[in-house]
Amino acid sequence: MTERLILSNESLSVEVLPEFGAKVSSMRLLPEGEELLQQPLRPYAPRTRTMAFEEGDASGIDECIPTVSACDVEFGGNCLPVPDHGDFWRIPFASRREAEELVLEATGFTLPLRFEKRFALEGTRLRIDYRLENVGRQSLPFLWSAHPGFAVEPGDRILLPDSVKEINVWHSGGGRLGAPGQVHSWPHTHDAADQSVDLSLAGGPEDGVGDKLFAVAPREGWVALERRRLRKRIEVRFDPAWASFLGLWLAFGGWPAGQAQRQHCVALEPCTAPADSLATALERGLARILEVEAWFEWKIEIHVIPA
């Protein structure tokens, strides 16, 4: 039976699954009980070390370390195959409670990285504190990307500070926004067929959209999703000095291809590199390097406030 750890107060109820990568599987508004996260496309089931992310439930809030896309990494004289979405979404975490916090920890199998996630609720805010430690014998490369899939309805809107003027395409399903590297103005642009597109506007599951985009992290340190029906704004706050880039995953029925159940969500993804591949980040000099016995600590906060 799946272990479910609960944090709750008068405003929010959060559920964490230690067995499944310390995934936040549910984040509900109280007292309404409205779910804010993409729910499972498939039933929760054990993950292997090689399976693709789309073979799992593809839901909730996960973390991608040391890569997002699968790749072979040349580092320290070795060629390391790193699996899709990294190690940590697919392995169980040890868990404990400390006062009002949940603390979960695991060590990766691709690279000897020890990863800790600490969850706490403060009013209408979920705070997640991270610690990543090198427990190996050589310096280690990695990239990190948050992967919170927020449920959406048509007409919901992605909000970015005015400092964000343009985004870059990493992947666009069916070539909707052109080839990788294509630059678009934010939020109004044209697609590959020269049709006007408002990238900030959530579409419906019938649209078949699956786009991964990157921007330089806004100096204001936030990105938000406005849920119109709920009259709520879900704001992800982060330190742009650490998470120097921002990923946007727009999934309006376009992923996973070939499956009956597809995502209808937006992922707001503070990240350390404008690339899903650790190999690409290394080639571009954008991977983070963690020295032996060293660690990094950072956090994100998810606020739910009136729109």
Rank of each mutant, 00 (worst) to 15 (best):
T2I: 15
L5R: 14
I6R: 15
N9S: 02
S11C: 12
V14H: 01
V16T: 06
L17P: 02
L17S: 01
G21I: 03
S25N: 09
S25Q: 13
R28A: 00
L30T: 07
E32F: 13
E35S: 07
E35K: 01
E35A: 12
E35T: 00
L36V: 00
P40E: 12
R42Q: 14
T48M: 03
T48P: 04
T50F: 12
T50R: 08
T50V: 12
T50D: 03
M51Y: 03
F53M: 02
F53A: 14
F53H: 10
E55T: 13
G56P: 07
A58E: 14
A58K: 15
S59M: 08
S59Q: 03
V68P: 01
F75S: 14
C79A: 01
V82Q: 00
V82S: 08
V82I: 09
G86D: 00
I91T: 07
A94C: 11
R96Y: 12
R96F: 05
A99I: 09
T107A: 00
T110E: 10
T110G: 15
P112D: 10
R114A: 13
E116D: 03
F119C: 13
F119V: 09
A120W: 03
L121I: 11
L121M: 06
R127S: 10
I128W: 01
D129Y: 03
R131C: 09
R131S: 06
E133H: 07
N134K: 04
Q138F: 06
P141V: 05
L143K: 00
W144K: 05
S145T: 04
A146T: 12
P154I: 00
L159K: 13
L160C: 05
P161A: 09
K165V: 07
K165C: 06
I167S: 15
N168E: 15
W170Y: 13
S172H: 07
S172P: 08
G174Y: 03
L177A: 02
L177S: 03
G178E: 01
P180S: 08
G181S: 15
S185F: 07
W186Q: 05
T189M: 12
H190Y: 15
H190K: 15
D191C: 08
D191F: 11
D194R: 14
V197I: 14
G203A: 13
P205W: 04
E206M: 14
E206W: 12
D207F: 02
V209A: 06
L213D: 10
F214T: 09
A215K: 11
P218G: 13
A224Q: 11
A224W: 09
L225Q: 10
R228C: 01
R229T: 05
R233A: 06
I234K: 05
E235K: 02
V236T: 15
R237P: 04
F238Y: 05
D239R: 13
P240G: 08
G247R: 11
G247A: 07
F252C: 01
G254D: 04
W255Y: 04
W255I: 02
W255E: 03
G258D: 04
Q261W: 00
Q263W: 03
H264N: 15
C265H: 06
E269V: 08
E269C: 05
E269G: 00
A275T: 08
S277I: 06
T280P: 09
R284Q: 03
G285R: 00
R288Y: 03
R288H: 02
L290W: 12
E291K: 13
V292T: 04
A294G: 04
F296S: 07
W298C: 05
E301T: 15
I302V: 14
V304L: 09
A307W: 00
